[in-house]
Amino acid sequence: MWRWLHPYAKPETVYHLLGRWLPWVTAGAVLILGGGLVWGLLFAPADYQQGDSYRIIFIHVPSAMFSMSIYVSLAVAAFIGRVWQLKMADWALAAIAPVGAVFTFIALFTGAVWGKPMWGTWWEWDARLTSQLILLFLYIGVLALYYAFSDNRTGAKAAGILAMVGVINIPIIRYSVEWWNTLHQGATLTVFERPPMANSMLFPLLTCILGFALLAAALIFQRMRTEILRQELRRPWVKNVLQVSPTTGEQR
């Protein structure tokens, strides 16, 4: 594992590698997500029960899906950082966490907007919405800790520990919230659990999911490059990069 990772442990190498991938991933995200959204919002048929308001799923479902897996990736990065003493894995936290937090927020917001026509209320203490809200708090905690330290590297390590503690707690939190929800007889009308979807709706949804994945990757790559520059600010190679070409860093 260490031997395989070693070449990638140099910040400069990673910076340039990400720089090479970034245009492709970004282009893919724009094309696929754009295509999926146009397909879903304009061409897919309306739902016979919910009319056009169901179309929010093309944003809601992908962002909700990835909000959780991004937190797991956060903890995986922190774990790698600890076990193999790879400081860049710690820095990845700063790249990943805000993206996850924004996805979580989008999922919450679209959930609330969808809830208005469906439940007649903006906020319902539904198990999934509640879990999502707690997840947002967890993200904010990791970010707050990351940036609380004057020494960047200490902050990265501390936030990593918190992310690992958080990921152990997530299943417990989810389970407890679901149990709490059944105890209090929450909303019985769940718009999230639906009969199997027609293909004409499913395919644009799958396209959007792929598009969101690429979008997340593109954002994380770009943020990771920025974070590498921030952490390595005083190194000579950063000065070279910034002088020659602030955006791509390809030509040196």
Binding site: I134, F137, L138, I140, L145, L162, I172, Y175, S176, W179
Partner: peptide, 17 residues
């Protein structure tokens, strides 16, 4: 304040059960 931000979400299962 930071501490409450970090810890209170993790206390939720405890509170619920």
């Amino acid at each position: 304040a930071l501490l409450s931000l970090l810890l209170l979400p993790l206390f939720i299962p405890l509170l619920i059960f």
